[in-house]
């Protein structure tokens, strides 16, 4: 099984530790994983802003970098969802279609493909899990509170294997944090208010760490935490699952 590691641009630039933890974790689990150096971005920031028609070159680049792998794994539900929903390449649509089905967010790859049951990880802290919308409502990582359907949680399944970790409950378990890509600046006022409210929910319930499968949401909440001089930290779920 050859796995291509897809590290979204902002993780590459701002949160290399999330990328490193993803890489190390996959290696630890015996996965043959490679990071194709030619990758940049999935094109989501453009597409979500209405410029999907400008993402052709990004898409082609993505295909060139990743079409040779059995699986493509990424520590970002949002970017993965974008590829799954919107990767189209002129004159290579068949190839693009295959790539769309091979791309996995890290948590779903660990649970659904590797079927990880016994992680050797330790993180003795109180942790609040942020359900990023694209991972949850787009990739179905966790059952959505709106639906009348049986509960499940893939990140919850993995976190329950982490020694010492105490998962706190939240008042609103799957409300959006308000990052939303360019929404965070275009709709600054609402974005910030949503972020503050989300952070507050975690703080009220005693979180020491706010974690999640999408660094973008965490970056937004981190910005608010820091501005409020909070000691609570954000951390990508890969870093927890890789913690010893």
């Amino acid at each position: 099984m050859k796995v291509g590691l897809f590290i979204p641009c902002y993780v590459d630039q701002f949160y290399p530790n999330a990328g490193i933890a993803t890489y190390q974790l996959l290696r630890k689990l015996g996965v043959d994983v490679t990071y194709p150096a030619g990758q940049t971005c999935c094109g989501q920031p453009m597409a979500n802003s209405g410029f999907e028609h400008l993402t052709g070159d990004c898409n082609r680049l993505f295909l060139d970098n990743f079409s040779g792998f059995d699986y493509i794994v990424s520590p970002s539900g949002s970017c993965v969802l974008h590829i799954k929903d919107h990767l189209h390449v002129e004159n290579a649509e068949a190839e693009a279609t295959v790539v769309r089905t091979k791309v996995y967010e890290l948590v779903e790859f660990l649970v659904d493909i590797l079927k990880v049951k016994d992680l050797k990880a330790k993180f003795p802290h109180k942790v609040g899990l942020h359900q990023s919308c694209h991972g949850q409502r787009g990739l179905y990582l966790t059952q959505m509170t709106e639906l009348v359907a049986p509960y499940f949680s893939k990140p919850g399944q993995l976190l329950s294997q982490v020694e010492g970790l105490e998962l706190i409950s939240l008042s609103r378990e799957d409300e959006c944090c308000g990052f939303g890509g360019t929404f965070c600046v275009v709709e600054e006022a609402v974005s910030v208010k949503m972020g503050k409210d989300r952070v507050k929910d975690h703080l009220t319930h005693g979180a020491e760490y706010i974690i999640g499968a999408d660094m973008s949401c965490l970056m937004h909440m981190e910005g608010i935490l820091k501005r409020e001089n909070s000691t609570v930290k954000v951390m990508h779920i890969a870093e927890i699952l890789n913690a010893e």
Partner: peptide, 29 residues
């Protein structure tokens, strides 16, 4: 857009910037 550290940047009004790490993931790799 969320990345320019000045007063004209709507990100910065109520949120701090992410810290720029010493090296990118690509460089680490």
């Amino acid at each position: 857009p969320f990345a320019v550290n000045n007063q004209f940047n709507p990100w910065y009004k109520h949120r701090d910037m992410p810290e720029a790490p010493a090296e990118s993931f690509g460089e680490w790799y």
